[in-house]
Amino acid sequence: MKHFPAYYTVWHITGHYGLRVVAFLVLMFLMLPIVVIMPLSFNAEPFFTFTEGMLTFDPDAYSLRWYQEIVDDQKWRIAIRNSFVVGIAAALIATTLGTLAAVGLSSPWMPYKRLITALLLSPMIVPLIIIAAGMFFFYTRFNLVGTFTGLIIAHAALGVPFVIITVTATLSGFDRSLFVAGLSLGASPLKVFWDVVIPLIRPGVISGGLFAFVTSFDEVVLVLFLAGPEQRTIPRQMFSGLREQINPTILAVATLLVVLSAAMLFTLEVLRRRSARLGGAG
């Protein structure tokens, strides 16, 4: 039994345990839906619920058939490839441009800093449906709708704010005198940027890039409006699967995606710790 201070009444103690119970329930609320779909994805039957066999741990009630279906279905294979291609390309563009911009934005000399920052962060705030509608109207004029180029540009724009936020945060712990020192030794700003700044802010850049990748990897609204049949991505395939025909293949895909997010989370945590060790904020 925990020892409470003498002035605690029974109400204080109830509150103490009550808080634990509430926190536990909220954590369950957060995690349970994600955990529940995992065993369901091994269901031998085409249902979205636990069969009697599953509850009695009958091995025949479990199967890998829905995972096999992902492998067998050409649409899922194309979708998986597209998601990675678009995600990586969009993340590269967003990271390159975003990192450069973050360096400029963290300079004390940056003009119109507040306005430009707000502008560059706005893709994060404007609802996706508005972005999608606008891009559909505008990209059409350049024949970018239904192309990989169009989708990659669109996703790169969405990823930019995340790169700016993470890299700016890393730069705030960065000693600017190193930059000035480099310049005063006669190096060009770009050379200083490449040889001095980049190695120091690398953890921030990588986590920004990861954020940009995940943003693209999860995104479905822009895909719905801008992609043609050849650019279908995993979320797009899931969206039509959920709308049209609910089948446990989606649960298998979902399970794989949860595993992937866990891996990303782990990578980010490692990066954050390394960055913290290097003295930058993460």
């Binding site: 839906p33 994600i34 529940v36 779909i37 959920l242 649960l251 997010s261 990303m264």
Partner: peptide, 14 residues
């Protein structure tokens, strides 16, 4: 960090 579609799928399954 889990995909929005995954979480929505979970609620449909539930």
């Amino acid at each position: 960090w889990t995909s929005l579609l995954v979480r929505t799928t979970a609620w449909i399954a539930l």
